[in-house]
Design a protein around this nucleic acid. Structure first.
Lengths: 250, 250
DNA sequence: GACACGCATTGACCTGGATCAATCCGTGCG
DNA sequence: CGCACGGATTGATCCAGGTCAATGCGTGTC
């Protein structure tokens, strides 16, 4: 019920788009395709959109497709019997959704904002992997990057304080957003609940730590708490706890 | 300094081993090789061993090789400036070490027990990946499995209680060990410090929870706390918190 | 404008796990 | 044997973050 936006319009607009003008062409799983491989991908792709809040796949359910996020932001979550939830991944444009070689989704995939996916039939994509080495190589590279990111997050979950966790997430979002503008400004794609789920905290603790960082002058807020401003990213990254010298992985 | 065991003897014994009789032949990165690919791997492999406690690679250092764990158990850890440490992976026989496409190790790799590695020059292995599709495909599959495992662990780190964490780890170790013997019995490859590092806890909390599980009759200990016995794995897995019905991922 | 709804914030209190500090116990060594 | 050493255990205390509960605030609706 979460809002019937004009999705068909979006869908239609993207459906006519060819790969050459695709915004994620050079970063997604197709990044290193030659024109032959790109042609094969183009012939099997289709676009599909979800509104913010909609479920893209349920934990354990059949997932007959794979694809790349073209636009928007999706979350991966795992949960325990009794309802405790942990976000285990945050997908941004160019990230890959689904798992070749597995018929079911190991975690729940949810649209955090409106999301558009460039999707492929799973079986056909698996066939493609066998004889399109550039796609397979790029997918391996992306998977290894995801693995590194997951392990970085394990360090955060296991050892960082609440303040460090929140600072880490805000720094992450700010770096992904416009790196040129000054002061740094970013609209949070995640509400407090999703942030808490990502950080292994409660909503209240996230809220308290955001307020504390603001009170201490490390960040400023706008748009009723949904936009973060930061004059001094280095200061924020010191709060985040990892490398004081601003060296981030990647 | 940590014990000069007769490593050369072990090394010598394995160096003469051919892939056909290798204990990890059907599970490692070479699992699906045809005889041509296996021949190429065999010509570039070499064996190398480390004693328990030795460092295999330092976080951020150059790592000129990749390889498969043949024997023993190694840990991957990430750490913060101020010394806080989090284990981000536990490598068992057949697991892959190193990252094709990256020259430096993103985390510290340490031998938890005596470890033997079947190693390949990183550059030569990368070349092999390009035209040995079975190796590349198997590596992708293994990387995706690692990613799933890392994400499962994120759920543990972010949302499980200390008791659940300890029960999860013990159940994991017991299932990997002899699944036939009854009662289930396993020698822990990890000391309390490594367990604490893996679970995002302190040594003291791990010790307390192990004691509590023993007091509650869920497990028994032997060999001065280094061996775990379990008569009722289902009971232990209920303590672990995920699926009451014993369904584990994989 | 008045109201309701869905967040986010703030406050008061409680608790699980960290911290600090003794033991304990198996092993190796003089 | 006695002793030292490196883990592991156990106890006492503290506090960061969870829990419960009230309040604030922007948005959409009538």
């Amino acid at each position: 019920m979460a809002g019937l936006r004009p999705l068909t319009a979006v869908h239609g607009a993207l459906a006519t788009q060819d790969c050459a003008s695709c915004p994620i062409r050079h970063r997604a799983v197709c990044a290193r395709c030659d024109s032959a491989e790109l042609g094969r991908l183009e012939s099997m792709k289709s676009y599909r959109s979800w509104a913010a809040g909609e479920t893209i796949a349920l934990e354990g359910d059949a997932l007959p497709f794979v694809g790349s996020i073209v636009r928007g932001c999706a979350t991966l979550t795992r949960s325990l019997e009794d309802g405790r939830v942990q976000m285990v991944g945050l997908l941004m444009p160019s990230d890959f959704v689904g798992r070749p070689g597995r018929a079911t989704a190991p975690y729940e995939v949810t649209a955090a904002t409106d999301v558009t996916l460039c999707q492929f039939d799973r079986q056909r994509f698996e066939n493609l992997l066998i004889d399109a080495p550039q796609v397979a190589a790029r997918l391996l590279e992306m998977s290894l990057d995801e693995l590194d990111a997951a392990r970085d997050w394990m360090l955060l979950l296991g050892r960082k304080s609440a303040r460090e966790k929140v600072a880490t997430l805000l720094a992450l979002v700010l770096r992904r957003a416009a790196a040129d503008a000054r002061p740094l400004r970013a609209d949070l794609p995640l509400g407090r609940e999703a942030m808490a789920s990502y950080l292994g905290l409660t909503i209240e603790t996230v809220s308290r730590q955001v307020s504390a960082l603001k009170r201490d002058g490390v960040i400023r807020l706008d748009n009723g708490g949904r936009t973060v401003l930061c004059d001094d990213l280095a200061a924020l990254m010191i709060e985040a706890g990892d490398d004081a010298d601003g060296g981030m992985p990647g």
